[in-house]
Design a protein around this nucleic acid. Structure first.
Length: 764
DNA sequence: ATAGGGTTAG
């Protein structure tokens, strides 16, 4: 080869080199596919430039960023003399694509086998890998190594170490480090803001935001987004929307992150108008391919009860995403379509969709909130069979299902599971356990759980008080109520409902008035509907019907069916026709098709011998098509029941009751009627009722199961059976009612009672 | 080649 030829070759090489270099540079700044990487690779091989480290490093990066880690590591191995650049590139790619263990392995290979001294640039990727694996100790070792290598004060190293601390929940260490960092730029500040915002510490977020401004660091889009997310996590939805608008006003164009942070807030505020505006913006800006944005949109429409719009957004998705599916499932069950949700869930599963812990948890939660308790238990089992690990959120979703059907063994199993997995200190898990044990009739175990909890928040205190109240333990409820305040925990409206409910069940008028008045006088809060309802029940129970009525009249809001129902059932007990008529009239307006109200009124008339009025109510029911209800024919039957029960009213025994019921139902059947459970126990005192029920739950379930009852009655029985703690009886009982309709309001009332929120009404 | 942000379950 002549010198000229050699020179020409060099020029050509250089030309090719810069050519490929330009191509690779272009590729690295755009979205590429594996195909691009292969073409570039072929080009490099053809031109014989594969010994140029800078070119192969770029190629390696191209492969790695397209998830072709096998090719990338082959290239690394093929380079005879790899430098820090090459290693860093691959480490960075591993970290970026969440292959944290691979990143750390390669880092270790670089410093031990290749004996290369890293520069400061590689540390952010390594710390990110440690953070991703929550490997705090390993991170500290890497930090020591960085310090020995002379990078201790490098701002890159410090910032990424801060990130590691934050990800590993070392907030205090992070703050100390933050104070030491000399050059705090917008990235450092934003990292801290984001970390506090994830925890919902909105005061810290606000403070940091304004502190950074006063230090002359102007917040960027990421800082703003962190602030929006912070308000969102802390439940300050109005503020989240306000900050979003303010950010826009200050000239920042919201990006996908801003949208997905603000949409949940809009959904929680049910501000559909704003939600639709944001949807428009999403379409205009082309964010509808962003998975988080789409998920947040589905969630928002679900929260605004727009199921059609929600389905539309969901079905327009090109590439299915588990987040969107989960939001869709929850959206359906949130809007009372739990059967559809279950069907969709099964479909996803059948299609081989990889359901995650959120999918299973939300489905379990939907079932246990909608009376599908057995399904919830089955799903919990199934998720573990397919290898999805339940987490600390799954347990509080599952436990209500155990409580609803008094499935004590399942509840205990979930409790043990929580202990093993270390969830038992979680306040949500603890409160759900307290609630579950109370529902299964094991109030002592509730108490034990409560006492074992290291930290107690308002929810825990309310849970134990609700348990006591449910078991009619007024003394314990009041003691706990006082204790929570000496422990510095302020009561909320639920706490008051618990204590008032306990007072009302036990007829403690004086105490009831004291707590009721203290709501506004001592605690500067306003009494809510349920508090008034408790008071009406209490006054009604002790026979102060006029006082109860004047309470209703002076209520600052329109009384609901629970309040009038409480008055009506008291009127039944104390045979007050005048007030009974008033209450019934209101109830007929509020719930025209609830037969229970008509029955109660006719009960009152009958007890006063007003047979003409009884007939009128009966005709009213007939004209409304409520004929089928067994209560219609109650007068003839009631006398028979009373005759039958008269003999041993003081201490009735279950066997005798069953016997009488048998006789009764035969009599009734002869007359062409079915007995109503309300007959059986209506004149028995509460305390006695529990005595009767206790220990005889199964028999009772069988008896009641045979009866054709009004909608309220099965709920009453379920409650009593739950307090007996007899799972089998409850299940048997529920299965008797499968397919029969229990109205939504009844179910709500039932749930209200369960939460200790409502003690009123004619059912309990 | 270089750090920071978002969604869905209580």
């Amino acid at each position: 080869m002549t010198k000229q030829q050699q020179a020409l070759r060099n020029v050509l090489d250089k030309f090719r080199h810069s050519n490929i270099n330009i191509i690779l540079q272009c590729l690295s700044s755009t979205t590429t596919t594996t195909c691009h990487a292969r073409q570039a690779h072929a080009h490099i091989l053809k031109t014989g430039l594969s010994n140029h480290v800078n070119l192969t490093t770029k190629l390696l990066s191209l492969y790695a960023n397209n998830h072709c880690f096998h090719e990338a590591s082959l290239i690394l191995d093929s380079i005879s003399d790899p430098n820090v650049f090459t290693f860093s590139t691959l480490i960075h790619a591993y970290s970026k694509l969440s292959r944290f263990a691979d990143a750390l392995r390669l880092f270790s290979r670089m410093i031990s086998h290749a004996r290369l001294l890293p520069d400061a640039h590689v540390f952010p990727s390594v710390f990110k890998a440690c953070a991703g694996l929550r490997a705090f100790k390993l991170g500290q070792q890497v930090h020591s190594f960085a310090s020995v290598s002379g990078f201790a004060l490098d701002s890159l190293v410090q910032s990424s170490l801060l990130h590691l601390y934050l990800k590993c929940d070392r907030l205090r260490d992070a703050h100390n480090l933050f104070d030491k960092i000399a050059q705090r730029d917008v990235v450092t500040w934003s990292a801290l803001i984001a970390s506090y915002s994830r925890r919902g510490c909105i005061h810290e977020v606000e403070q940091l935001f304004y502190e950074m401004r006063s230090m002359g660091v102007e917040p960027n889009l990421v800082s703003w987004n962190g602030m929006i997310a912070g308000f969102n996590h802390s439940g300050s939805y109005n503020e989240a929307v306000f900050v979003f608008q303010k950010m826009h006003f200050e000239g920042f164009q919201p990006d996908g992150s801003s949208i997905s942070s603000v949409l949940p807030a809009i959904g929680n505020l049910e501000d559909l108008v704003l939600g639709i505006q944001i949807h428009g913006y999403v379409i205009k800006q082309g964010f509808n391919s962003d998975k988080c944005v789409v998920t947040a949109l589905i969630d928002m429409y679900g929260k605004c009860a727009c199921t059609l719009e929600m389905s539309q957004v969901f079905h327009e998705i090109n590439e299915m995403d588990i987040g969107a599916c989960n939001a869709f499932i929850t959206g359906l069950s949130r809007n009372g379509q739990v059967n559809d949700a279950l069907e969709v869930f099964r479909q996803f599963k059948g299609q081989g969709m990889e359901l995650n812990v959120i999918s299973w948890t939300s489905m379990i939660g939907s079932c246990s909130q909608n009376g599908k308790d057995m399904e919830a238990l089955e799903l919990f089992r199934e998720m573990q069979v397919v290898g999805v690990k339940p987490n600390s959120v799954t347990i509080p979703c599952l436990l209500p299902a155990c409580g609803n059907i008094a499935a004590l063994m399942h509840g205990k199993a979930a409790h043990c599971f929580s202990l093993r997995r270390g969830f038992s200190n979680d306040v949500y898990v603890g409160s759900a356990l307290i609630d579950m044990y109370a529902n299964c009739g094991k109030i002592q175990l509730s108490r034990l759980c409560f006492e074992k909890m290291a930290t107690k928040n308002l929810v825990c205190w309310n849970a134990i008080m609700g348990g006591y109240a449910m078991h009619g333990k007024a003394k314990e409820t009041m003691e706990t109520f006082n204790l929570m305040q000496t422990n510095g925990q302020k009561p909320d409206f639920i706490s008051f409902t618990c204590v008032l409910s306990a007072c009302s069940q036990n007829g403690l008028t004086e105490e009831g008035w004291y707590y009721f008045n203290s709501i506004s006088q001592e605690h500067n809060m306003e009494a809510r509907m349920e508090h008034y309802a408790c008071m009406v029940t209490l006054l009604g129970r002790v026979g102060k019907l006029e006082e109860a009525y004047s309470m209703i009249k002076t209520m600052p809001f329109e009384p609901d069916a629970c309040v009038w129902g409480a008055l009506l059932s008291s009127c039944r007990v104390h045979s007050n026709v005048t007030l009974g008529e008033i209450a019934a009239r209101e109830l007929f307006k509020l719930e025209p098709s609830n037969p229970g109200n008509y029955i109660l009124l006719s009960n009152i008339y009958a007890s006063e011998g007003k047979w003409i009025e009884v007939d009128k109510v009966r005709n009213m029911m007939k004209s409304l098509g409520l004929r089928k209800n067994p209560g219609c024919s109650w007068i003839e039957l009631k006398n028979k029941v009373h005759m039958l029960l008269a003999g041993d009213k003081s201490h009735p025994q279950i066997d005798q009751i069953i016997e009488k019921l048998d006789k009764l139902s035969m009599e009734m059947k002869k007359l062409g009627y079915c007995p109503n459970t309300d007959f059986v126990l209506q004149d028995v005192e509460e305390q006695e009722k529990e005595q009767i029920l206790c220990g005889h739950s199964e028999k009772l379930a069988v008896v009641f199961g045979l009866l054709n009852t009004s909608p309220g009655s099965p709920l009453r029985v379920i409650k009593n059976l739950r307090i007996c703690g007899d799972c089998h009886a409850v299940i048997k009982f529920i299965s008797n009612f499968e397919g029969r309709e229990i109205s939504v309001r009844d179910t709500n009332r039932f749930h209200h009672f369960k939460d200790g929120v409502c003690s009123c009404g004619d059912y309990w």
